[in-house]
């Protein structure tokens, strides 16, 4: 079985204060797929990512990464195959230099200094910000911060990439650049977002969440043109498909 496979079986999660997060989510994502997870605010998108990475533990249900079931005991080892890019890059970047932030993951993987240095160089090159290696993260633009946040995850060479609202706070050029970067990766990708146009461009498959449940799961092109489905999920047609867009 491929290590790049992820499967959720009947996932349930309720927050400690009783707020329902997920109410029985199941899917299977194969090697190399790019999957968009869309839904209105509170649909459970971010909760799903936190469960898949092992930060949260499901109240009920199982997660398989490759052929291994994700548990509290093995989440550092198994969950480490997934690289997650958080919604706010300022939450992800905590060192005083971009290079140190990118090196943080590989160092903690126990790599020797030469390999860490090579990983940092390659990750920064992949997102096109090699020149920012010695800059403090707080001095970067929103697009540069996003690229740096992706580089911190790429440097760990994860099997799969999980991205939470990757296009938020980006101007059109930075967003276009992000799309090109993501299209260049062959990783299995799970992208949670409200940016349906981004999903149209990057993801072949889409999972529509509503109130913690899977409302639909199928080819992006057909789901994101289904007005009734989108309406039910609290979403609208992607801007590029809107009649006013011509």
């Amino acid at each position: 079985m491929s290590h790049h496979l992820i499967e959720a079986r009947d996932l349930h999660y309720t927050y400690p204060d009783g707020t329902p997060g997920l109410g029985g989510v199941s899917f299977r994502i194969e090697h190399g797929q790019s999957v968009g997870v869309v839904g209105a605010n509170g649909a459970g998108k971010s909760t799903l990512l936190l469960l898949l990475t092992g930060i949260l533990t499901p109240s009920l249900g199982e997660i398989y990464i490759g052929d291994a079931r994700l548990t509290k005991k093995n989440r550092d080892r198994i969950g480490g195959r997934l690289g997650m890019v958080f919604q706010d890059p300022d939450d992800q970047l905590f060192m005083s230099r971009v290079g140190d932030d990118v090196a943080f993951g590989p160092i903690n993987q126990g790599l020797d200094p030469d390999r860490v240095s090579r990983r940092v160089t390659e990750a920064l090159q992949a997102v096109g910000i090699s020149h920012l290696k010695n800059r403090p993260p707080f001095k970067l633009s929103a697009g540069e911060k996003r690229a740096a946040a992706i580089a911190t995850v790429l440097a760990m060479e994860p099997d799969m990439l999980l991205l939470d609202e990757p296009s938020s706070w980006l101007d059109p050029k930075a967003r276009r650049r992000l799309i090109k970067i993501l299209q260049g990766f062959s990783h299995t990708k799970i992208i949670t977002t409200h940016d349906l146009d981004l999903v149209l461009e990057i993801c072949q498959r889409t999972i529509v969440l509503s109130r913690g449940r899977v409302l639909a799961d199928g080819p992006t092109a057909s789901l994101l043109t289904d007005r009734k489905l989108l309406d039910e999920a609290g979403l609208e047609l992607p801007l590029s498909l809107h009649p006013a867009a011509g």
């Binding site: 080892r77 969950g79 958080f86 290079g99 943080f104 993951g105 160092i107």
Partner: peptide, 13 residues
């Protein structure tokens, strides 16, 4: 975000 990349390693660059 930090613990997802640290994964128990406890090392800082």
């Amino acid at each position: 975000a930090m613990s997802l990349r640290e994964r128990g390693g406890g090392r800082f660059p």
